[in-house]
């Protein structure tokens, strides 16, 4: 049993987005974080100081650990932002402003 089966999900048509250039399949209504988890990815940020990997922590928009760059816009909370067809998602390095 997986989560989709558990709730008898009949999702709308899947679509493609990219993470660092790699194609990932996402479902309509999912957040960026959910799409990345479904693709087996759990980190998409390197911290400013030690460059350590981070991903979802609180899952409800409070902790800001899941910051990610979506369509060239850095510092988006992956757990809040809905994923859209064709999104270009990039692992965020540090502040995400290239400094």
């Amino acid at each position: 049993m997986n989560p989709l089966e558990l709730v008898g999900a009949e999702p709308g048509p899947a679509f493609t987005v990219t993470l660092d250039g790699r194609e990932i399949t996402a479902l309509p209504g999912q957040t960026v974080a959910a799409a990345l988890w479904a693709a087996g990815v759990t980190s998409w940020r390197a911290t400013r100081g030690a460059g350590r990997p981070r991903g979802v922590f609180c899952g409800i928009g409070v902790c800001f650990d899941c910051l990610v760059t979506v369509n060239d816009r850095p510092n988006q909370r992956a757990c809040l932002v809905p994923v859209r067809a064709g999104d270009t998602i990039r692992t965020q390095e540090g502040t995400g402003h290239g400094d």
Partner: peptide, 13 residues
């Protein structure tokens, strides 16, 4: 709670 939120809202683990 985060694991639960992602499961309830995104149907992912």
């Amino acid at each position: 709670g985060g694991a639960q939120a992602m499961l309830k809202g995104g149907l992912v683990v």
